[in-house]
């Protein structure tokens, strides 16, 4: 372990092409871009499906399907197959195959949680809003969306964790990212390098998760009222579904 920290503290480990610095930038870039693409592609559709209450079987089963498909297999299939392993700008070798895999594996948690979030809004509240004369659009923006937001953000957080993990595995197909420090360490029998790479990957993963968790708390519109409730009386707690993906 001590040698691993020595590796992490050594400036040479970070510099140069394929150093820790470049790999870290690559992996963060891949994570941010693919999460953004996946969100833009799927969130509006999933919210809309939740609003009209259709397509639930697909929205929920997509997470079950996503779990059964090995990330590594998809990376291999894409990079050996039509997408190839060419360098894609700042994303590095096999950048396209990696990006596509990351987007694919970010979709299930985003879709399932957004759908369940909107669908799970108490129908009586929606009815009340309709009775007050709210238009469908307003019902969505003023009632369903705020109430679904915590679960939507949970989905984004789970997708973030999934994407970061998948980006690490890209190194197994000689793709970009910090996984390379781990795989190169194995290739050169450098256990300090292997451990150093693993520590860095784990620490950044925990920082990302922590930041996402904090953002989730901050944006939750019900937070204030929940806190108030805790002091005044014990209200029946709403069961929060957190599908593990």
């Amino acid at each position: 372990m001590g040698e691993a920290f020595a590796y992490l503290l050594d400036g040479d480990s970070w510099s140069g092409s394929n150093g820790l610095g470049q790999q870290l930038v690559q992996q963060v870039l891949l994570t941010v871009v693919s999460l953004a693409v996946a969100t833009v592609l799927s969130l509006p559709v999933a919210l809309w499906l939740g609003h009209i209450g259709k397509g639930g079987a697909i929205a929920i089963n997509i997470s079950n399907i996503g779990r059964a498909i090995p990330v590594f297999a998809v990376l291999v299939l894409l990079s050996v197959g039509p997408v190839g392993t060419d360098v894609l700008g700042p994303f590095g070798r096999a950048g396209a195959a990696t990006l596509i895999s990351l987007v694919l594996f970010a979709l299930p948690p985003i879709i399932t949680n957004a759908y369940v979030g909107v669908r799970g809004v108490d129908p009586e509240i929606v009815e009340a809003a309709r009775g007050m004369g709210m238009a469908e659009r307003r019902i969505f923006t003023r009632v369903e969306w705020p109430l679904a937001l915590p679960l939507v953000l949970t989905g984004l957080r789970l997708a973030l964790v999934q994407v970061w993990a998948t980006a690490t595995i890209a190194a197994l197909v000689a793709g970009p990212g910090l996984g390379n420090t781990i795989t190169n360490g194995f290739a050169n029998s450098r256990i300090d390098q292997v451990t150093a790479g693993a520590i860095l990957v784990a620490v950044v993963a925990l920082l990302l998760e922590g930041a996402a968790f904090a953002a989730e708390r901050l944006v939750d519109p019900m937070r204030a009222s929940r806190r108030a409730n805790r002091h005044s009386q014990r209200t029946p707690s709403v069961p929060t579904v957190e599908p593990i993906v």
Binding site: M1, V161, W164, A165, T168, I169, A171, L172, G179, I182, G185, I191, V194, T195, G197, A198, I199, V201, A202, A205, L206, E209, I244
Partner: peptide, 17 residues
């Protein structure tokens, strides 16, 4: 939850120690 957040490739690499 914290364990779950650590990517598999990193967790295996740490366990190798």
């Amino acid at each position: 939850t914290i364990i779950y957040t650590v990517p598999s490739l990193a967790l295996f690499a740490l366990l190798v120690n």
